[in-house]
Simulated scan of single mutants.
Amino acid sequence: MKIILKLAKPEKLIVFGTISYFVVVFVIFLLAAIVPPNAPLTHWTTFIFLLVLVIPLVAALLAPRAYMFNEDSLRILRVIGSISIPYNRIVTISNQENVCLDREFGNGGLFAYYGVFRDEDGRRVRVYATTFKRMVRIETTDGKIFYLSPAEPEKFVEALRQRLEKLKTLSRR
Results as ranks from 00 to 15, higher is better:
5 L>S: 05
86 P>M: 10
87 Y>H: 06
4 I>N: 11
38 N>P: 00
154 E>Y: 05
127 V>W: 07
6 K>H: 14
58 V>M: 10
163 R>F: 04
112 A>M: 01
106 G>N: 07
78 R>I: 03
22 F>E: 02
71 E>A: 15
18 T>F: 15
40 P>K: 06
45 T>Y: 00
117 F>H: 09
152 E>I: 09
30 L>C: 08
10 P>R: 06
4 I>Q: 13
87 Y>G: 08
22 F>I: 01
102 D>C: 05
139 E>C: 05
5 L>P: 04
81 G>N: 13
21 Y>R: 02
86 P>C: 09
166 K>C: 03
77 L>E: 15
21 Y>T: 13
116 V>G: 01
12 K>R: 15
104 E>V: 14
141 T>H: 05
112 A>H: 02
107 N>M: 05
22 F>L: 11
96 Q>T: 12
127 V>F: 08
35 V>I: 15
139 E>M: 12
133 K>V: 03
152 E>W: 02
25 V>E: 06
67 Y>E: 05
93 I>F: 00
105 F>N: 13
173 R>Y: 08
72 D>S: 15
147 Y>P: 07
32 A>Y: 01
12 K>Y: 03
1 M>C: 08
32 A>K: 03
69 F>Y: 12
88 N>H: 14
114 Y>E: 07
28 I>G: 00
48 I>T: 08
155 K>Q: 12
9 K>V: 14
132 F>N: 05
114 Y>P: 01
162 Q>A: 11
104 E>L: 12
29 F>H: 11
20 S>C: 10
59 A>M: 11
6 K>R: 14
43 H>R: 04
87 Y>K: 04
81 G>P: 03
125 V>L: 10
73 S>A: 15
48 I>Q: 00
169 T>V: 08
44 W>E: 09
161 R>D: 11
47 F>I: 09
83 I>H: 08
129 A>T: 09
70 N>P: 00
35 V>C: 01
3 I>A: 03
93 I>H: 04
102 D>N: 15
112 A>I: 03
135 M>N: 12
61 L>D: 02
73 S>K: 13
162 Q>H: 11
135 M>I: 03
162 Q>T: 11
125 V>F: 11
148 L>F: 06
136 V>G: 06
99 V>Y: 04
64 P>D: 06
